[in-house]
Amino acid sequence: MRKPKIAVIGGGTGISVILDSLRKKDVDIAAIVTVADDGGSSGELRKSLQHITPPGDLRNVLVALSDMPRFYEQVFQYRFAKEDGPLAGHPLGNLIIAGISEMQGSTYNAMQLLTKFFHTTGKIYPSSDSPLTLHAVFTDGREVSGESQLAKHSGMIERVYVTNTYNQDKPVASRKVVQTILESDLVVLGPGSLFTSILPNLVIEEIGQALLETKAEIAYVCNIMTQRGETEHFSDSDHVGVLHRHLGQSFVDTVLVNIEPVPKEYMTSHQFDEYLVQVEHDFAGLQEQVPRVISSNFLKLEKGGAFHDGDAVVEELLSHIRVSS
């Protein structure tokens, strides 16, 4: 029997937890990574090197899927000190990805080269080969442009969409992204920020349509904590409702939700100030929207934050996968 084909869609920090556990399994992995980040190092590089997609999320995914020695990882992830002038705050890996993207003529080509160089388990595709700008329309009608700007505005987000940053062309998916989704046995969304890590991929029309057409099982790994400026007061059912509303119909088959309580005294707000409270569990609301709800202990308390236990999530995902012929 062939290896199960699994596509994981989202942003680098969130899905890296799942990818790190998946690469230890006998599966065929493809990571589809958002390119709408315009904050921090990625944002600065976007200003300096136009037409290069932001490298930060891709860097984290590359590390998660690589078998590089720990020292190499530390070198790749090294961030220049704040007193280092124009290099201040840039991880070395971001500069490498940006440089090779320029050399190879596209970020897609750069990632194919780097996956070989770092011996990754699986493929890595930017969701688009052009840098994208994320736009959010709030329920009161206001519109905000730029991923990094969303959390600065109060109110509820009604919907998001993306545009090409440097031209008026319609955003399109990178090569092999649509084919990967259509040929997968399992597509995993998240974990990660709903409006800024997951949806920027799904609202690229080709990707959204592929998710509606694929025969793959589509699983959503719901966030453990709500996020300031994005999902305040959200239940797990609310998260799924937003996904379905953006694609115009129900498409998620399975939802994984953590039901293990996060100790109130545990969260250190100075480290993770974007997190608010634990996402409320609405089992009845989920049952109305998806065929399968998996409620379990997926919690991992680490470094003052509440994260997903990647191994527990992957074991649950693989236990339900069906390999098509």
Results as ranks from 00 to 15, higher is better:
L182C: 05
L182G: 09
E183G: 05
E183K: 14
E183S: 14
E183Y: 00
S184D: 05
D185M: 06
D185Q: 04
L186N: 11
L186G: 07
L189V: 05
L189F: 07
L189G: 12
P191A: 05
P191L: 01
G192Q: 06
L194N: 07
F195Q: 08
F195G: 04
T196P: 08
T196G: 07
S197W: 02
I198N: 07
I198F: 02
L199H: 09
L199C: 07
N201A: 01
N201T: 06
L202H: 09
V203G: 03
V203D: 06
I204N: 08
E205W: 02
E206N: 07
E206K: 06
I207R: 05
A210C: 08
A210V: 09
L212T: 08
L212K: 15
T214Q: 07
T214N: 03
T214V: 00
K215C: 03
E217C: 12
E217W: 02
I218H: 09
I218L: 09
A219L: 03
A219E: 06
Y220W: 01
Y220I: 00
V221N: 11
V221G: 08
N223P: 09
M225T: 08
M225F: 07
M225Y: 10
Q227I: 08
Q227H: 14
R228C: 04
R228K: 15
G229S: 12
G229Y: 07
E230M: 04
E230Q: 14
E230I: 00
E230N: 05
E232D: 12
E232Q: 13
E232C: 00
E232H: 03
H233P: 00
F234K: 01
F234A: 01
S235E: 10
S235Y: 04
D236Y: 08
S237K: 04
D238E: 11
H239W: 00
H239M: 01
H239P: 04
G241W: 02
V242K: 12
L243N: 12
R245L: 06
H246R: 09
G248R: 10
Q249A: 15
Q249W: 01
S250V: 01
F251Q: 12
V252M: 11
V252E: 12
V252I: 15
D253N: 15
T254A: 05
V255P: 11
V255C: 09
L256M: 10
L256I: 07
L256S: 10
L256N: 10
L256T: 08
V257H: 03
V257W: 00
N258L: 01
I259H: 02
I259D: 09
E260A: 15
E260H: 11
P263Y: 07
K264G: 12
K264E: 14
E265R: 11
E265F: 02
Y266K: 03
Y266G: 06
M267L: 15
M267Y: 06
M267C: 06
T268S: 13
S269N: 12
H270G: 02
H270E: 14
Q271Y: 15
Q271N: 13
Q271I: 13
Q271V: 10
D273V: 00
D273A: 13
D273C: 04
E274A: 10
Y275L: 10
Y275H: 15
Y275F: 13
Y275M: 08
L276D: 01
L276W: 03
L276Q: 13
V277H: 14
V277E: 15
V277P: 00
V277S: 13
Q278N: 08
H281V: 14
D282A: 02
D282L: 01
D282Q: 05
D282T: 03
F283V: 11
F283N: 13
A284K: 14
A284F: 08
A284G: 11
L286Y: 07
